[in-house]
Simulated scan of single mutants.
Amino acid sequence: MFIDIAGFTGLSERLGDRVVPLLSRYLDITSEIIVANGGTIDKFIGDAVMAFWGAPQPQEDHAARCCRAALACCRAIEASGLADDLGQPLQIRIGINSGRMLVGNIGSELRLNYTVIGDAVNVASRLEGANKSYGTQILIGESTERLARGAVVTREVDSIAVYGREERLAVHELIGIVDEDVGMAGWIARYEQGLANYRARRFAVALADFEAVLAERGHDRPSELMRERCRQFAATMPDAAWQPVVALRTK
């Protein structure tokens, strides 16, 4: 799991050393929640928090634990009242992915760090950044969604190729915990129906699905993005080689 503060570069430039108390409080909140949910804090990289589950002790429910921690971090930051210098509530973005990783003490003769490395780690970092494109707060990889299925509420947002990687990845938005969040099934099903119609090149039908989601929710950035794509493709049908995969050009 990677956690980042949205707009931190500009915030730190404006605040200078006054950013330290804000950063410290944010790190305190997220760290406490990660540890309480059985996570291992790997490192802090500026405002970024890197953590992992399943080591040093195996955890059969590692994906669900991580998802619960992510949702709890979002709720805790919102409840904390932390705000930037403009008075806007602090916003965080989270990327989560699961897979085989190399874990252990890695480093130089002068310094070792107990950490994880591997492709699955890199994808988690890219998913954190992908939240910027989709206006979401928590994005998880398809393996995490599969492992945590039944414990969490998600919706498949899109198929993407993250920066620096060509392989297609189904990306899901983490929305809530099963039994805690009710009344969501309708718009989630309608969005995923629209996604299926979009992939089948039924763009006019998909457009109606995404507009129905927006009518119910008022604002939903993934639906807005998909609506614009459907409008473009309904007007100018893509060629036969078209694939419903978006390549993200930035980290």
Results as ranks from 00 to 15, higher is better:
Leu82Arg: 09
Gly87Pro: 00
Leu71Gly: 14
Ser98Arg: 05
Ser80Cys: 04
Leu90Ser: 13
Leu90Gln: 14
Arg65Phe: 11
Ala79Gly: 02
Leu86Gln: 15
Cys67Thr: 04
Ile96Pro: 01
Gly87Arg: 00
Ser98Leu: 06
Ala70Tyr: 11
Arg93Tyr: 14
Arg93Met: 10
Arg75Ser: 14
Ala76Val: 08
Ala64Glu: 14
Gly99Trp: 12
Ala70Arg: 10
Gln91Arg: 09
Cys74Glu: 14
Gln91Tyr: 02
Cys73Gly: 11
Gly99Asn: 04
Asp61Glu: 14
Gly95Thr: 00
Ile77Pro: 00
Ser80Glu: 13
Cys66His: 11
His62Lys: 08
Gly81His: 08
Arg100Phe: 09
Ile94Leu: 10
Ser98Cys: 15
Gly99Glu: 03
His62Glu: 13
Asn97Glu: 01
Asp84Thr: 10
Asp84Asn: 15
Leu82Trp: 13
Leu90Pro: 07
Gln91Asn: 05
Cys66Met: 07
Glu78Tyr: 04
Ala76Glu: 11
Cys67Trp: 13
Gly95Gln: 10
Ala69His: 05
Asn97Tyr: 06
Ala64Leu: 13
Ala63Gly: 03
Cys73Trp: 00
Ile92Ser: 04
Cys67Lys: 03
Ile94Lys: 03
Ala72Cys: 05
Ala69Trp: 06
His62Arg: 06
Ile77Asn: 03
Cys74Pro: 02
Gly81Leu: 02
Gly99Pro: 00
Gly99Phe: 12
Ser80Arg: 03
Ala76Tyr: 08
Ala63Asp: 12
Gln91Thr: 14
Arg93Asn: 05
Ile92Asn: 02
Arg68Ile: 07
Cys67Pro: 00
Asp85His: 15
Gly81Asp: 10
Ile92Ala: 03
Arg100Asp: 14
Gly87Lys: 00
Ala64Phe: 07
Gln91Glu: 10
Glu78Leu: 06
Arg93Ala: 12
Asp84Glu: 11
Ala63Glu: 11
Ala63Lys: 02
Glu78Asn: 02
Gln88Ser: 14
Ala76Arg: 07
Gln88Val: 06
Ile96Ala: 04
Arg100Val: 13
Arg100Ala: 08
Gly95His: 08
Ile77Ala: 01
Asp61His: 09
Ala83Leu: 01
Ile96Trp: 09
Ala63Arg: 01
Asp61Cys: 03
Gly81Met: 02
Gly99His: 04
Pro89Arg: 07
